Deep mutational scan, measured.
Amino acid sequence: MKGKVVSYLAAKKYGFIQGDDGESYFLHFSELLDKKDEGKLVKGSMVHFDPTPTPKGLAAKAISLPLE
């Protein structure tokens, strides 16, 4: 699924993505496929991810940034 980063707290390594389906997904650095892309996780960045339901809500897994 595609989505847009709505927040990312680099110090805490987490944030949120708004998916194309309108839902909010929890984003964690550990799910970023290329850790070098962390600096690109800023508000408004477009990402691809696997939407995954968890006991705490919806989460983004296997997060990647589109090729530039």
Rank of each mutant, 00 (worst) to 15 (best):
M1T: 06
M1E: 04
K2Q: 11
K2E: 07
K2P: 06
G3C: 03
K4H: 13
V5F: 01
V6P: 02
V6R: 12
V6G: 05
V6H: 07
V6K: 13
S7G: 07
Y8M: 04
L9F: 15
L9W: 15
A10F: 14
A10K: 14
A10E: 09
A10L: 08
A10V: 13
A10I: 12
A11Q: 11
A11D: 12
A11F: 10
A11T: 12
A11I: 12
A11W: 12
A11G: 11
K12D: 06
K12W: 09
K12H: 10
K12M: 10
K12L: 11
K13C: 07
K13L: 04
Y14F: 10
Y14C: 07
Y14I: 06
F16P: 00
F16R: 06
F16C: 07
I17R: 00
I17D: 00
I17L: 05
Q18Y: 10
Q18D: 09
Q18A: 11
G19I: 02
G19S: 04
G19T: 04
D20H: 09
D21Y: 03
D21C: 04
D21A: 03
D21N: 08
G22M: 06
E23L: 15
E23H: 14
E23R: 15
E23T: 07
S24M: 15
S24R: 14
S24W: 13
Y25Q: 00
Y25M: 00
Y25N: 01
F26E: 03
F26Q: 03
F26S: 03
F26M: 05
L27M: 12
H28I: 05
H28E: 06
F29R: 09
E31H: 07
L32K: 00
L32C: 02
L32R: 00
L33K: 12
L33M: 10
L33W: 05
L33S: 06
L33V: 13
D34F: 06
D34R: 06
D34G: 03
D34Y: 08
D34I: 07
K35S: 09
K35N: 06
K36M: 11
K36N: 14
K36S: 13
D37K: 06
E38Y: 05
E38H: 07
E38V: 10
E38W: 07
E38Q: 06
G39M: 12
K40M: 08
L41F: 04
L41S: 01
V42G: 07
V42E: 09
K43R: 11
K43L: 08
K43T: 10
K43C: 09
K43F: 11
G44P: 02
G44R: 03
S45H: 09
S45K: 13
S45C: 14
S45G: 08
M46A: 12
M46V: 15
M46Q: 10
M46N: 10
M46I: 15
V47D: 01
V47F: 02
V47G: 01
H48T: 13
H48V: 14
H48Y: 14
H48I: 14
H48R: 12
F49W: 00
F49A: 00
D50N: 14
D50V: 15
P51H: 04
P51T: 06
T52C: 13
T52E: 12
P53I: 14
P53G: 08
P53F: 13
T54C: 08
T54Q: 06
T54H: 08
P55Y: 10
P55H: 10
P55C: 09
K56A: 09
K56D: 07
G57T: 03
G57C: 04
G57D: 01
L58C: 08
A59Q: 13
A59S: 10
A59R: 15
A59C: 11
A60T: 00
A60V: 01
A60S: 03
K61A: 09
K61L: 10
K61W: 08
K61Q: 08
K61G: 07
A62D: 09
A62W: 09
A62V: 06
I63V: 13
I63Q: 01
I63Y: 02
I63W: 02
S64G: 09
S64C: 10
P66H: 15
P66E: 14
P66G: 14
L67D: 13
L67R: 13
L67A: 12
L67P: 13
E68T: 13
E68N: 13
